[in-house]
């Protein structure tokens, strides 16, 4: 997939729409799930940073998983967690240097961003376009 998830903290207002979108999208049997994205105070005035999984290339979570429950989706590039396989050992939660694998204490499941299988809901709902799901070409142009 030639799309990439981009976070622009300078546009984030900390409205937490992304959290709601994430929570409801990943609901199981109507029960809201823990959000995989959190706008966190960036330490400066009016600066919020939406923190979510960076889908690292050499991902510590994949390395830490002893039952191969974490696998990279070759299409989206996201590291996906298979809950059927996961044994809840917390290795990935402990190993992620960015704290982006989280234990949902309500459902007792470990959750992490899966880019909603290729169409992140948070990007849809972000009113300020701080979260965008855009074509890589465009992104390259802009930053390059």
């Amino acid at each position: 997939m030639n799309k990439r998830f981009i976070v622009k903290p300078e546009l984030c207002t900390g409205c937490r729409s992304c959290e709601l979108a994430c929570s409801f999208t990943h609901a199981i049997d109507g029960v809201r799930s823990l959000t995989r994205i959190n706008p966190i105070d960036g330490g400066f005035k009016d600066l919020w940073v939406p923190v979510t999984c960076l889908q690292c290339d050499d991902a510590a979570c994949i390395k830490s998983c002893l039952v191969n429950a974490l696998k990279r989706n070759p299409v989206t590039g996201a590291v996906e967690l298979n809950h059927e396989v996961c044994v809840n050992c917390m290795a990935c939660v402990a190993a992620c240097p960015f704290g982006c694998a989280i234990l949902d204490t309500q459902t007792n499941l470990i959750v992490k961003c899966d880019l909603c299988g290729g169409d992140p809901a948070c990007a849809h709902f972000c009113p300020t376009k701080a979260l965008v799901w855009e074509l890589i070409k465009k992104a390259v142009k802009k930053t390059g």
Binding site: V7, P9, E10, N38, I40, D41, G42, G43, F44, L47, V49, V51, A60, V93, A94, A95, C96, P97, F98, G99, C100, A101, I102, L103
Partner: peptide
């Protein structure tokens, strides 16, 4: 990597990204 909890790791990441954004 194991010496901080996930919440503090996230805070750390937010701090780093915040500085860059600032």
């Amino acid at each position: 990597y194991f010496e901080k909890c996930d919440a503090c790791h996230r805070k750390e990441l937010a701090g780093t990204m915040g500085r860059i954004a600032n």
